[in-house]
């Protein structure tokens, strides 16, 4: 089975992606991760104004039978939260790189050091 990978994103081994867009970056989980989890039923996210720290937990994603911690690929202040996920957690399954995004964070460029490239991430999941 092959999974979608977005070449504009950088990745954590724990299956989170981050995609820079100007001063902010969006964060979500990968297609591979959503498939492993199965039907996502709940997502717990920080609030706007909270800070997240690279490699530290920032939330939780739950399917029926599993709970996974979410780790931040970059550090920074949360400037937007995808509140749609609270009522439509299925977006994480349906469109993990798009409507299923989780946070938007004001990040530092240097944060990208050490993150996996799309190719490295693909190699890891294969």
């Amino acid at each position: 089975m092959s999974f979608d990978i977005d070449t504009d994103c950088r990745y954590l081994e724990s299956h989170e992606w981050v995609r820079p867009d100007g001063d902010t970056a969006r964060i979500g989980i990968t297609d591979f991760a959503q498939d492993e989890l199965g039907d996502v039923v709940f997502v717990e996210l920080p609030s706007e104004g909270d800070d997240v720290t690279r490699d530290a937990e920032f939330g939780v994603v739950e399917s029926i039978k599993a709970v996974s911690d979410l780790y931040a690929p970059v550090s920074g202040e949360v400037v937007a939260v995808n509140e749609r996920l609270f009522d439509e957690p299925e977006l994480v399954n349906d469109d993990p790189f798009g409507d299923g995004w989780m946070l938007e964070v004001a990040y530092e460029e240097s944060d990208f050091d050490g993150l996996l490239t799309a190719k490295e991430y693909r190699d890891q999941t294969e």
Binding site: V41, F42, E62, S63, I64, K65, A66, V67
Partner: peptide
């Protein structure tokens, strides 16, 4: 909502 419970979330 069984992910709250011990058989899934264990020490948490």
């Amino acid at each position: 909502l069984q992910t709250r419970e011990q058989h899934i979330r264990r020490e948490r």
